[in-house]
Amino acid sequence: MTTETMSRPAPAALTEWAIRGELILNCNCTVFCPCVVSLGNHPPTEGYCQAWAGVRIDSGHYGDEDLSGLNVGLLLEIPGLMARGGWKAAAYIDERASDAAYDGLVAIFSGAAKGTTGLFSVLVAEFLGAERAPVVFETEGKARRLMVGKKIQGEVVPVQGKEPDSEIVVTNTEYWMGPDITVATATKGRVRAFGRVWDFDGRSAEICQIDWKGPGR
């Protein structure tokens, strides 16, 4: 795959957009990532954050362009406190996306489209790029899997609580992704992309139902 966007997209006229679906994330923190409750005011457990994430879009649009059924993979690197910025980020856009959907998703996930993900435009110091790729998001039982070729191969599962049929959920948070975060761990978390070689098997993971929109909130 060739890199199609190597710098942050230039600001454009703001377009109304919305995404509903599910997000999974696996980082290098030990279980459980402190950023969810501290909102980035507590450092990651290792002092810095490296993460991959996957988004399954069940329904959504960017202007008149339908985004339903598409998937997105993300790579995130944060040097210290999440709230202090200095992030590096990259996006893998579902190869099935039309040109208009691709451009819309790059705008959304770079923060240029404002709204829920607009904080990226403030916190991300370097947008490494966006690429079209075969982005597969699968659910089997309680397991969620993200596969972006050989670049990201991940699987996360909820951490089992006292009641095995009920997930451990941190509710009513002000976390940017959504208010209710399922505590999870990675059974596989491997990244081979943009010069990064990460293995986060057994590390912290999150599952979140998302309802994002823009440009306003």
Rank of each mutant, 00 (worst) to 15 (best):
V157G: 04
P179A: 13
E163A: 12
W198P: 01
I181A: 08
P179Y: 11
Q160F: 01
E174Q: 07
I168T: 08
I181N: 13
I168W: 04
A193R: 09
T187R: 15
A184R: 15
S204K: 00
A184Y: 15
P158R: 02
R190N: 15
G195K: 09
I168Y: 02
V156R: 06
E155I: 09
D180V: 08
V169I: 15
R190L: 12
G195T: 09
I181S: 08
A184P: 15
A186P: 15
V157D: 02
P158M: 02
E163D: 15
R192T: 11
R192W: 02
G178N: 07
F200M: 13
S204L: 00
N172G: 04
V183W: 14
N172Y: 02
P179Q: 12
G189W: 09
V159I: 07
N172D: 11
V170L: 10
V169F: 05
E167F: 04
D165G: 10
W176Q: 08
V159F: 01
G178M: 07
G154I: 07
S166F: 00
K188M: 13
E163V: 13
V197W: 00
S204V: 00
R192M: 08
D199Y: 00
D180H: 14
T182V: 15
Y175I: 03
T185F: 15
G161N: 05
A193S: 15
D201M: 01
K162E: 06
V156K: 07
T187G: 10
P179H: 12
G189D: 12
V156Q: 07
V191H: 12
V183M: 15
A193W: 10
E167N: 09
E155F: 04
G202V: 08
P164D: 05
S166V: 06
Q153V: 11
I181K: 09
T187H: 10
I181E: 12
G202C: 08
S204Y: 00
V197S: 08
F194L: 13
P179C: 11
E163H: 10
D165Y: 06
Q153D: 12
F200L: 12
F200W: 05
G178Q: 08
P158V: 02
G195L: 09
G161P: 07
V191Q: 13
E167D: 11
G195I: 10
W198L: 12
V156A: 11
V191M: 14
G202P: 09
G161Y: 03
T171L: 00
I168L: 13
P179L: 11
S166D: 05
T185S: 14
R192G: 09
G195W: 09
M177P: 00
R190I: 15
N172C: 02
W198T: 01
F200T: 07
A186H: 13
T173H: 05
P164E: 07
M177Q: 05
G202K: 06
G189Y: 10
T182D: 12
M177F: 05
